[in-house]
Design a protein around this nucleic acid. Sequence first.
RNA 1: GGAGGGAUGGCCGAGCGGUCUAAGGCGCACGCCUGGAGAGCGUGUUGGGGGCAACUCCUCGCGGGUUCGAAUCCCGCUCCCUCCGCCA
Length: 424
Amino acid sequence: MHDLRWLRDDPGAFDRALARRGLPPAAASILAVDSERRALETTLQERQAERNRLSREIGEAKRTGADASALLARVAELKDEVKAGEERLRELQARLESLLASHPNRLADDVPDGPDASANRVVRVVGTPRRFAFEPKPHEVLGARLGMSLERAAKLSGARFVVLSGQLARLERALAAFMLDLQTKEHGYREVSVPLLVRDEALFGTGQLPKFAEDLFRVSSGHWLIPTAEVPLTNLVAGEILAEADLPLRFTACTPCFRSEAGAAGKDTKGMLRQHQFWKVELVSVTTPETSAAEHERMTKCAEECLKRLELPYRVVLLCSGDTGFASAKTYDLEVWLPGQGVYREISSCSNCTDFQARRMQARYRPAAGGSPRFVHTLNGSGLAVGRTLIAVLENFQEEDGSVRLPGALVPYMDGVDRLEPED
RNA sequence: GGAGGGAUGGCCGAGCGGUCUAAGGCGCACGCCUGGAGAGCGUGUUGGGGGCAACUCCUCGCGGGUUCGAAUCCCGCUCCCUCCGCCA
């Protein structure tokens, strides 16, 4: 959702922002609807004022017992005109809102331009990939001997699901608990347990609807399964006017995430890298406009801390214009090193959505200095994707015999177990 | 799922066809008072639009309707509460 006033003041900037995303200009067509709306509103308003005045006079006449028939006749003429005008105004308003809602967020100035992921910029590389004395195996090979079954998952649910059992099920839970503890105890995030089924409005608020319905699962009641806890966590402030003193709000939740990913067919078909269902610890911040950029850096650091403590090598990537998501103004991806694949893979995505989502969900705050409510800024990041973290642990800490040594940070969460052993 | 009751400004709450430009209270802001703070007193305080402006329109959960005129009456929807049913 965009600020109409900004668009009016500088339509060229709006179109340039679209161009950075590889989209055709749209300012002129939006402004055409806007000026039609404003012209109509001005004339309609005169009729409404007239009607209100006459109605007051009728009330006065009735009270004093005077003859009101002349007034009634005049107001009767206005009635249809006002009604038609109101109807037309509603249509224009709806069209305008849907136009404003269908364009992606404006990118931050420091986002590099580029058509796709190839133009993303590596910001920093942290940790050194381990030197293996043997050929490191991919996680699906390691997992097969540790309690991971894609075959059994297929029996239950089809492709792109996984069954983890025994020590791997336990490891998944340990990772989630470790991440939640880190974010709540050390980084000040408030843990929230949220619904996994949400209504249309929530998904509109964060920007998944109406454009990306095909990426989502929908159930027979009409609810949608959340694709990320960003949706319920961010919508927590929908429709509210917060006090500036309450900001920033920082929320975290560990939830399953459900993605139909229709467009991903054929990619990452091996193992559990790309699933219809996976656990993720999500971070969401709600801030003032002045502090969101700093909060974005902070949030990214909070997510990175997980990787550091798990001793996993990673790099931070600033997404380019063509790779940045619909609602985001600026996104850092955290990519973890996967020796089994020999690549860095996304394990977290931290986005500053500025006021884009706040406008869609009418989330505002009252400035401490006084004045009208302003839209908050919203940010979200993974802290981290649990399934992919599990993959990263298996691949980075594997031994030649198929066992996996566990990073020290996880041992307390595993009841002292510091090694996964093949079960065969 | 069934039957009732409800939704009013940042919060609580009155209001049941025109005087609502929404009582009253709380909170908040500013001022007076005070050595300072508190109490007290006074003033202000829903939000969103249009218009160069004067000014004006919309906004009482959301959407329709009735009426010259709707917070108030009618219909639909959403959510909350109570009871019943079902249920981990």
